[in-house]
Design a protein around this nucleic acid. Structure first.
Length: 423
RNA sequence: GGAGAGAUGGCAGAGUGGUUGAAUGCGGCGGUCUUGAAAACCGUUGAAACCCGUAAGGGUUUCCGGGGGUUCGAAUCCCUCUCUCUCCGCCA
């Protein structure tokens, strides 16, 4: 969420920039401003009454010691009246604060100046294309390859859980493990610290990174314990630093974790959910960075090139896409997607989404750093990206590397899989 | 799951109704000393909101795990939730 102060001091900027996200903020900011003025008034009034009460309460203390019972009784009576007023004002202040908060929560993050206008994914800008040439070919799609080589059993998944919960078998399972290990090793090499976080998080944590209240329907919820299954390691990983004031020189903090991810994907349908394209449980290695505001965009570029380097090492056709305002998520200021091309499906598959959230998550999480010069506390910037999500990478590897005799494993993975061909 | 104990500032740890936002120690920061460092000594050191001020700064309020209550007054008393520790039970 945006900071109240920033929001009101930069009204025009906020309104005009949010237009890129196709969000009209004008009215809501005005409402917030009115509420905030009211809030200030009420608080000032309340503080005065509280001051009076405190002074008198102290006075009673001394009078009691001096045994001046009469004076004490009159003072008490007087204070009882003030107390009633205070209670009313306190309630009012709380309500106003809640109203303001509710309204701010409805405002998405401001897009970075470089974000292009646009309605949806077709308006995204292709920054770069690389890897082998992406030429469509009448090859078998991965869901058929999975069956043919007995490495992915979708039916078994349906039987034991339901659609979107594939079962990986033998070399299929090993390939998953190999990819996870490879991605983690690369990330560690890159200076990320490896974590194994919980896969269930509480409400406050889900709020911190922005999954709540905006994406409540996307998460699986354990009603009985009021916990959520993580949709991405971003959630537990970033929240490790919830309610923290860091020293400036601790930044950047670079974290990585492999976790399974759980997504309900309500409303998805058709070709996009075939096979591994969109599933309810999948594996992903995530990278998270907490960074100084001055360096966060440089950091974002570094993260993108890092993820790019992984895709290159797997020898997959890829492209880097900059999301337009309409495709940008509620919480993001700037996002790059990395997509790999599936020759068999003749389509680009998103395998990574790398974003700078600026202070949007940090404000919700109360994550700050102490500025060395001024000694003042400022919100950190948070960033994250997939590095990488497995299912579509697996799909692309299977589909693009198939030949008459089976499927070739990318060179770099062979030390991890222990085999070079799936047949 | 049952019984008991506890939760205080970055950390350790006092404080059980009246200038306590909180002793003391450690740590951090600044300084003196030193060629430099260490040691020693001196000073300083939580967060947020509001008011006054262009600012520097000054003032007020709230916050002692979360929420609620008693009281003129709560870190201190009561209720409730969460978490931690000890013992028992269960168990990969």
């Amino acid at each position: 969420m945006l900071q109240l102060k920033f929001l009101l001091e930069n009204k025009d900027i906020v309104v005009s920039r949010l237009k890129i996200k196709n969000f009209n903020a004008e009215n809501i900011i005005e409402e917030i401003e009115t509420l905030n003025n009211k809030r200030k008034k009420v608080q000032t009034e309340l503080n005065k009454l509280q001051e009076e009460t405190n002074k008198n309460a102290r006075l009673i203390g001394t009078l009691v010691k001096e045994n001046k019972t009469k004076e004490v009784e009159t003072l008490k009576l007087n204070l009882t009246n003030i107390k009633e007023k205070i209670q009313i004002l306190e309630k009012e202040l709380k309500n106003i604060e809640k109203d303001i908060n509710d309204k701010i929560l409805q405002i998405p993050n401001i897009p970075h100046l470089s974000v292009p206008a646009g309605k949806g994914s077709t308006d995204n800008i292709i920054i770069k294309t690389g890897g082998p040439e992406p030429k469509p070919n009448n090859l078998l799609p991965h869901w058929e390859l999975g069956k043919k080589y007995k490495i992915i059993d979708f039916e078994a998944g349906v039987k034991i859980t339901g659609g979107g919960f594939p079962v990986y078998v033998e070399k299929g399972a090993k390939l998953q493990r190999a990819l996870v290990s490879y991605f983690l090793d690369k990330a560690i090499e890159q200076g990320f610290k490896e974590y194994i976080p919980p896969y269930l998080v509480n409400e406050n944590t889900a709020f911190g990174t922005g999954q709540l209240p905006d994406k409540e329907g996307q998460m699986y919820k354990i009603e009985e314990d009021n916990l959520y299954l993580i949709p991405t390691a971003e959630v537990p990983l970033t929240n490790i630093y919830k309610n923290t004031i860091l020293n400036e020189d601790e930044l950047p903090i670079k974290l990585t974790a492999y976790t399974p991810c759980f997504r309900r994907e309500a409303g998805s349908y058709g070709q996009n959910v075939r096979g591994l394209n969109r599933i309810h449980q999948f594996d992903k290695v995530e990278i998270v960075v907490i960074e100084h505001p001055d360096r966060s965009y440089k950091q974002l570029e570094d993260m993108v090139s890092y993820v790019e380097s992984i895709v290159i090492s797997l020898n997959l056709p890829y492209r880097i896409v900059k999301l337009c305002g309409g495709d940008l998520s509620f919480t993001s200021a700037l996002t790059y997607d990395i997509e790999v091309f599936s020759m068999a499906q003749n389509q680009w598959l998103e395998v990574s989404s790398i974003s700078n959230f600026e202070t949007f998550q940090a404000n919700r999480m109360n994550l700050k750093y102490k500025d060395k010069k001024t000694g003042k506390n400022f919100l950190c910037h948070t960033l994250n990206g997939s590095a990488l999500a497995l299912p579509r990478i697996v799909a692309a590897i299977l589909e693009n590397n198939q030949f008459e005799g089976g499927i070739k494993i990318p060179e770099i993975l062979i030390p991890y899989t222990g085999f070079s061909i799936i047949d």
